[in-house]
Write a protein that binds this DNA or RNA. Structure first.
Lengths: 206, 206, 206, 206
DNA sequence: GATGAATGAGAATTCATTCAT
DNA sequence: CATGAATGAATTCTCATTCAT
């Protein structure tokens, strides 16, 4: 790491790599993968073009790094809750809260990513190599899978009805993403309550 | 210059326009907005490049036209069901079926569009005028709004609990999109049942 | 081919493709492969950058096309002489003349090519795919091989001593290239005589 | 700034320079001038990038130094033979052997150089000052000139026919280079014999 | 002296759009 | 109207060189 600057409290004390990642986050989020240009990223990061390529092989890997570094703490936190020794419904709600918080911060970037890993380039014209795409997908599988595991736990305990776990986990996930994306989430706790309430007890008045 | 040609005299000129739209549908769906090239579209449409620009101002307007023409029949059908004089729960399930069917056919293109209406020039470098973006968004508002209207109807009749209608309509919508996108929908009727079942009665065993 | 211009005697009446090839010839010859820039080529060809890529896939293929189109007439002429029903020594001298004339015109470009097809990128970092490189090499093998065939003919007839044909053909070839490159060739006939004289009768005074 | 350091105090500093030169030799030989990167050279030399620029002004001067240092011992040895008091034909063959041995070792690098001294900024965009280019050329002139001097000696002694000495020396030289480059030289003595045999006695059976 | 992070001037390539025929 | 050759702005990526430590 190069800390040339004498004032480590200044904004420039972040490592160049970090500055680039943060700028990339902003630009990718705002513009999407394609419309995001390296030029815009370096302008925001206040760095030279070559510097980006010192730290990252190419635009695609910069994007991937961004996703990976952002998702890791989230996944860890989610796993802890999923594996916790608590009532299933509490765990579910806690997980929904984690999801909401994460997507509230990252919805824009994740939308971009979801778009990029789509079937595109099924015919080889893709920019994202199949192998990279699979790495992205594994990320989703892991997190949504954790939701599924807890749902299954609830079913096994006789608490929940016997529904298709994979489908339901995806449904829950998609609702979370939709709400955050639609900026319907003013307060995480309220939204988490709202979501779990519908999923657990349904719309029909008893 | 835009030659919309609302009145096709010759059968030939109409079919050209149609050929282009169909090719554009295929290419945009497969490649996304950016990676879709006019060259690929004309190759598939078996027409000249200039011809595309006779019928459409530019790539973006071609895309918009595509979306508009595809969504119109769907919206009409949806509206008929929403306004029908039937039990609310039946209407809801029928609407879910319509949605599922529509997104089963058009998920790819709609995903592209959803992605594009974010980022389409949120700032100075816009490719799309804010006004166009809003037109896309209105489309969503209309269809999701119809879901909301029927939900409200159910609430008014005392059938459904008093939830946030807009949020719930979006949630329902997002689940539909997620299921189709994840290719979890083998059979529309089954999937419609699955979705409404969860939303109406919840996961918790009574 | 597009002949927009009204004056077909003008310099611009050559097809764009031809203009580009001629400009590329000049620039590659003068600068070598790497230092030749597409920008310089289009400046000389008085054309747009995209036009180059309409006619040629990339810089490398432009270069290859150049080589191929230039060498074809030469190879044909050489073959005719090699296969002619004439005395071996006459054929040899005629072939040397053809070689000299060809390399007098094309030495610069051929030098560039010879440099490019060298072992470079034996380790995968090459710009020229092995397969392309082999196509270049086949070209050399063919023309030098024709020299060899005629030498062999001379040996078979008992006219020439039993030397290593491949080596000798390459030696003869290299001398031709060296003389033209060193601009020692004022007059093709004289130079051809000089070369064959040494190769056939040696330096030692009898 | 150029720090040539003709007087190495520390053993370490000399070895750095030497390490760089050796790495540069390997990389330039394998990749050619342009494709050789300073990064690759320092990786092989196990040194820092700045260090290269402490010893050499730039990439080009590094290349030049390489050539100069490599050619010096060869030129000295060649001169000794040329000036020796021996029969002309013996001297010629000995010189051919020296050439073959030298180019067998250095063909790759010399080819690169030969290619670069053409094109090295024949016009305004020169990377290399004309003066530098001429220094390279003088090197060739000197060694080929020594061949010429011995040939002339043979002519003066009535041993050889009165041919154009400069042309013939270049021809001899080019054959040597061609054979080594084509990897036709398995054994220096055999190849030297083969070359002189053809040049001295010709192909025609007496 | 040695180092290597930072830099930016190029270079190749893509692709929407125009316009003469 | 249909066409497609021509175009150049925009974009990614490379790599020699600098310079603060």
């Amino acid at each position: 790491m190069a800390y040339y600057r004498e004032d480590p409290q200044g904004d420039d004390s972040r490592s160049k790599r970090q500055q680039i990642l943060e700028a990339a986050y902003a630009v990718f989020s705002r513009k999407g993968y394609h419309r995001a240009t390296v030029d815009e990223i370096i302008a925001l990061a206040d760095t030279g073009k070559g510097t980006v390529y010192n730290y990252f092989n190419n635009k695609e890997q910069l994007f991937y790094t961004l996703i990976r570094e952002r998702s890791q703490p989230f996944e860890t936190a989610l796993e802890q809750v999923a594996d916790a020794d608590q009532p299933v419904l509490d765990k579910l709600q806690a997980m929904v809260r984690l999801f909401l918080r994460f997507y509230l911060d990252n919805a824009a970037l994740w939308r971009v990513m979801m778009h990029e890993i789509r079937g595109f380039g099924s015919d080889g014209l893709s920019y994202v190599k199949a192998e990279t795409r699979d790495k992205y997908r594994e990320g989703f599988s892991r997190t949504i899978g954790m939701l599924g595991r807890v749902l299954q736990e609830g079913i096994d305990q006789g608490l929940l009805r016997e529904v298709n776990v994979a489908h339901t986990a995806h449904a829950l996930f998609s609702v979370i993403v939709a709400l955050t994306f639609q900026q319907f989430v003013a307060d995480v706790d309220t939204a988490a309550h709202e979501v779990t309430d519908i999923f657990l007890y349904g719309l029909v008045r008893k």
